[in-house]
Design a protein around this nucleic acid. Structure first.
Lengths: 326, 326
DNA sequence: TTGTAGGCGTTATCAA
DNA sequence: TTGATAACGCCTACAA
């Protein structure tokens, strides 16, 4: 690996002069500067980022942490993060929970954005500080150095369920994701509350349990189909489980939406093709926004109060009926 | 940031002893080792990875580079990479073309996997060496330090087109992606060759031009629809463009597959829901495989000869007919 | 305008 | 079994 020293030797100057030239310091003559630049080009010099970070402790690199490679929308978030980061002259690294601890270090990165259920609150609080701010998506935290960006699950889910009620649906099932997650809890509570406001409730056997994966939706549907009391509609806590359920319905010969209707949450790509009514989260935008907040925090501007963002219902009529008339 | 020195002070030993203890060197007494570990825990010590890389030059971290955040299958590749890397005790970092040069440095990462059209051959050849191996996906390179993993586009595309011919299709159009890419060239050549073997050819106005994006497919379809000579079937060089075309067909009221049929390439998620016949690339597997080869190269085992992998046709009948009977 | 010297956190070497 | 010292590559005073 070629270093600043070798450039210095080749240029017949001292290492510090090379460093100064490369960093645009004014105390280098035009002639020398040019010679140094030419040599760096020629010898293909690459500054060692590790050494750089050592002394200064600054890195201009952000970190995004996630571990769920089966959820396509993460790419959109990354896209948003990357775009804004580049705009502000920051680089982006991405890693998974397994190794993030190593990279959440001021010598490598200067702040993180985390959207990862596998990571503990405790861990984030330990890492976060004014000097190393962390934006946590979908996870409420109150702590200096940690800022939460949360989705208003409750409102949008209420809107969806109310809309379904207006269209005539009365017998609801709820397909739950990981029950310990706030996401799932809020989506569930909204559903229950709206139904309650119309004096409806979800039958015990219509409360289905999954873990957000397509497979868990498939299995839950298979179990549901054993009962002879089908709901009119299933509210799924996310799209993937809805996809799994649809597959099971199709296998069984159930007609959707005539025999059973279903809605999702996330608006993943296949939802469009399937005509699935679902809820669209502005993923690119929240990545972008998160990065904005992160860089502000890094620059010492910006506070750590939580931010709430909105999702919107995407009405489609492949898996629900426009209006029920029975 | 808490350093090895402060641990040393707290433990009443020298920094080198702490370092030795932490790195499992045998020359540390059990007592001292325990004390040091306890203190590290207590004081929440995090080793500075930058300094580590400085001295040793080794990092046990791999890098994956890509820039196309709109193609969902990248997540599957990353999943494969991550899984095998973890298995072998390596960490994974991901970044985009914009900033990869910085991270492709022995002090940060010890090798890369690249799948990114935005990166020049030249650049890869410059970076790659025995000491810093690079696996390049979908890009043939012959160079010490650079190993190519290529998809056999030609065979699988031939199989697809031959199958369509057998089903009775005769009037073909080809929806091209970025023409300068090898992928597109091979897919095109396979199509043309199979047709030629049956004394068929693609009419000039049925050679459509796109750039692999959904939008470009949509536009190409709109243009195609102006002509009054529709093909029976469009071979699209990838799924995204096929999705765009399908949208245009639907808007125009064309029935698929009766009025016009279409196939894709990639087997992206929505293909299933649409019943699109397409070609499935084992993405998880090639990420896994690439990592296997990379780590072998890093360890000094393993050579730099190219590897060819196979894709398979996914026959579905939502967008083509089982057999044409006219 | 240029060069010298010290230090960032860690590890390797060698001496105690 | 431990500790002192130098070194990794770069940057920043400060001296020349």
């Amino acid at each position: 690996m070629i270093t600043i020293k070798e450039i210095a030797k080749a240029a017949g100057v001292s290492p510090s002069t090379v460093s100064n030239a490369l960093n645009g310091k004014p105390n280098v003559s035009e002639k020398v500067r040019e010679r140094i630049f030419a040599l760096c080009e020629e010898m293909n010099y690459q500054p060692n980022p590790a050494s750089k970070g050592l002394k200064s402790g600054k890195s201009k690199t952000l970190l995004f942490v996630f571990s769920d490679f089966d959820r396509q929308f993460y790419l959109q978030i990354i896209k948003g993060i990357n775009q804004y980061a580049n705009l502000r002259g920051y680089d982006l690294l991405v890693c998974s929970a397994t190794s993030c601890s190593k990279f959440m270090h001021p010598s490598i990165t200067c702040g993180s954005i985390i959207l990862d259920r596998r990571i503990q609150n405790q861990f984030i609080l330990q890492k976060a500080s004014n000097a190393y701010p962390i934006i946590s998506l979908d996870r409420p935290l109150l702590h200096q150095g940690a800022k939460s960006i949360l989705l208003d699950n409750y409102s949008v889910m209420s809107e969806l369920v109310e809309g379904l009620y207006q269209r005539g649906y009365r017998k609801f099932a709820f397909m739950a994701g990981v029950e310990s997650t706030l996401d799932n809890q809020e989506r569930y509570k909204a559903t229950v509350d709206v139904l309650q406001s119309h004096n409806l409730k979800i039958a015990a056997e219509h409360h289905l349990h999954g873990d957000y994966t397509e497979q868990s939706g498939y299995q839950a549907a298979k179990i549901l189909l054993l009962s002879n009391q089908l709901p009119e509609i299933v509210i799924s806590a996310n799209d993937d489980m809805a996809f799994g359920m649809l597959e099971a319905f199709e296998e069984t010969g159930l007609r959707v939406p005539e025999d059973i209707a279903i809605t999702g949450f996330d608006d993943e790509k296949p939802a469009e093709a399937l005509g699935l009514t679902t809820i669209s989260i502005p993923n690119f935008e929240r990545g972008y926004l998160a990065t904005q907040h992160l860089i502000n925090c890094i620059s010492g501007e910006g506070d750590f109060s939580p931010v709430i963002i909105n999702a919107s219902v995407k009405w489609r009529f492949g898996t629900i009926q426009k209006a029920l008339t029975n």
